[in-house]
Design a protein around this nucleic acid. Structure first.
Length: 582
DNA sequence: GCCGTTTTCGGCCCGACTGTTTTCAGTCG
């Protein structure tokens, strides 16, 4: 099961949505939303807290604490159950469509009895929205487009959702007697940004105990298939999980086969074929005699085919096989090579944890040698940042930095907002006071390509902008990226010495692996950042590392693997470049 | 429903955009 905190978070988020739809009480809904976020980002496991401990969580009072207790005791919350009876689940689904919020979802349900996304599409095609107050031709168009976007994401889930589930199942199966090995395979092992189904591989001499354990898992809502070597379940959330059990002798070949991708496998098998061999999930065989040559480890299989082991994130048939054959496979970035995080928030703006809490985690849990605090700047009005507040934070950062005997060197930065014209929140003089600035787009997503490209390029040309944050601002499955000419932007990054961020938030992963590959060609440097808004989210940087690996990045390409001295030189070089000559 | 006091009720992130209206509600970040 997921951590109880996440279950409670999802439950209160749902309750908040239901409140907005049924009562329209935005403040009460917001209270549940805030509580949900706090609980999800809270360090301590809620199931280990007593009532007093629960009420110590920010935004949790007696009413919500009671509901958490009720959930932990009974597995349900009666108030939420009651709300569910009043709103079909499909109506809540409607609010996931961009531009459709609780108010209009309620209208659709109450006047047209639309209670699911397919029903909504049908109603639009039947012209039933036309005469509805608050809806028009543009609304119809936008809703249909939003539905398309959702369907393109399909039933795929984000990495952490699949990763957590897979981790639990691997732990459960590893505990079964006779388990020689158990690992995640498939697109999750390749760290694709979304995962359609979870593949798990077990090496064991007998498969029955694993099939029995697997289909009896508490996560299994439905057993889709059950056989001697292969079974499939569907979880309550609808995610499909497949288990294959192979003999330990076939482990390497099977892991290779089930990791994919399909295109990678086809090409590797063709190479085997040309050498008079045959590769299957059971091993690498001599085509004529059928004698098994190798199969125990992936390394051995690749090696026999004339290649070094290829890291799973590279296995997409994007040239990795040729590179492996020619001995020019990149040494991809690893998590351990990261020496710092350059984009993080605190509760001074929209983060959940204090400066001290974030820094302590950066030191104790991540062992960083430098760490940047980059809270939002004033242009994001909702964050209520002021000159005074950021300067006060700088003092606080300096004091905290001086008091740390070991632990990361602290950099005081900010996440600037890139205005429609490419300007940022503060003038040069004020910006010069920061150790480091990230700059990102947060609004005006609809600008045309030319204007948008100019906007970003101008931000790159600002001598105080060191990192270009979440470039496309896409939200996976929710919002497409902004329209830019990527090559022009990457050329500007390279020319001006601006690092391109690989934002690790799992619903962003921005820039994507494809754009990383494209930017690399321009000689761009990168920063892999967590953009953490809580202590726990600092760990999300591993998704950014996965994305960087898929983009073939090495430690040399990533500025936050560099020594602090080299990083500071990079920052200083840009500032010098921006200074007028003489 | 939570929070912070002006301690027990009133405010709650705020501004902009969009498509719909014909002055604004709904949605978003």
């Amino acid at each position: 099961m997921a951590r109880p905190n996440e279950e409670v978070e999802a439950l209160f988020q749902e309750y908040a949505d239901l409140i907005s739809i049924t009562t329209g009480d935005a403040h009460r809904a917001r209270a549940y939303e805030k509580a949900a976020r706090s609980i999800g980002g809270y360090d301590a496991d809620v199931s280990r807290l007593d009532d007093k401990g629960l009420r110590a969580i920010p935004n949790v009072g007696s009413s919500i604490a009671d509901k958490i207790s009720e959930y932990l005791r009974t597995g349900r919350v009666s108030a939420v159950e009651e709300a569910r009876t009043r709103v079909p689940a499909g109506v809540r689904q409607l609010t996931a469509i961009p531009m459709l919020g609780p108010k209009r979802a309620k209208t659709l349900y109450e006047t047209l009895h639309v209670s699911s996304v397919p029903e909504l599409v049908e109603a639009i095609h039947a012209g039933r929205l036309r005469d509805l107050r608050g809806f028009g031709a543009r609304s119809e168009e936008k809703i249909l487009h939003g539905v398309e976007l959702m369907q393109a994401a399909g039933d795929r889930v984000l990495l952490p959702v699949a990763g957590e589930l897979a981790g639990e199942i691997v732990a459960a199966l590893s505990a079964v007697t006779g388990c020689v090995r158990c690992e995640i395979a498939g697109s999750l092992r390749r760290m694709r940004e979304t995962v359609g189904d979870v593949d798990i591989l077990v090496a064991a001499r007998k498969s029955e105990p694993f099939m029995a354990a697997f289909t009896a898992l508490p996560q299994a809502a439905e057993v889709v298939a059950e056989g001697p070597t292969k079974s499939g379940i569907r979880t309550r959330s609808g995610l499909r999980v497949d288990l294959r059990v192979v003999h330990p002798d076939a482990w390497g070949a099977a892991l290779l086969y089930f990791t994919g991708s399909r295109a990678h496998n086809i090409k590797v098998r063709r190479i085997a074929q040309r050498q008079g061999l045959k590769l299957s999930e059971y091993g690498l065989f001599d085509a004529e005699s059928g004698r098994r040559i190798v199969s125990r480890t992936e390394e051995k299989v690749y090696q026999r085919l004339g290649m070094p082991w290829i890291p799973p994130p590279l296995r997409e048939d994007r040239g990795e096989i040729e590179a492996a054959q020619e001995g020019r496979l990149p040494e991809v970035l690893t998590r351990r090579q990261l020496r710092g995080d350059l984009h993080t928030h605190t509760d001074l703006t929209d983060g959940l944890a204090t400066l001290e809490e974030m820094v302590r985690a950066a030191a104790d849990e991540h062992g960083y040698s430098y760490y940047a605090i980059t809270d939002h700047a004033p242009a994001l009005a909702m964050q209520r940042m002021t000159d005074e507040k950021i300067l006060q934070q700088r003092e606080q950062v300096r004091r905290l930095g001086a008091s740390l005997h070991k632990g990361p060197r602290l950099l005081h930065g900010t996440e600037l907002n890139i205005a429609p014209d490419g300007g940022v929140d503060w003038p040069d003089g004020f910006l010069a006071g920061f150790d480091l600035c990230v700059a990102s787009v947060h609004s005006h997503f609809q600008q045309g390509r030319a204007a948008m490209t100019r906007r970003i390029v101008r931000a790159c040309e600002n001598p105080h902008v060191h990192v270009l944050g979440h470039l496309t601002t896409r939200l996976i499955g929710k919002r497409p990226g902004i329209d830019i000419d990527p090559d022009e932007v990457f050329a500007a990054c390279a020319r001006t010495g601006t690092a391109l961020e690989v934002n690790s938030q799992p619903d962003r992963l921005d820039v994507s692996d494809e754009l990383i590959l494209r930017a690399r060609g321009h000689g761009v440097k990168f920063a892999v950042d967590s953009d953490a808004h809580s202590v726990r989210a600092l760990d999300g940087i591993r998704y950014g590392v996965g994305t960087a690996q898929r983009g073939w990045l090495t430690a040399e390409d990533v500025i936050n693997t560099w020594s602090r001295q080299r990083l500071l030189r990079f920052i200083e070089a840009k500032r010098r470049r921006g200074r007028p000559a003489g």
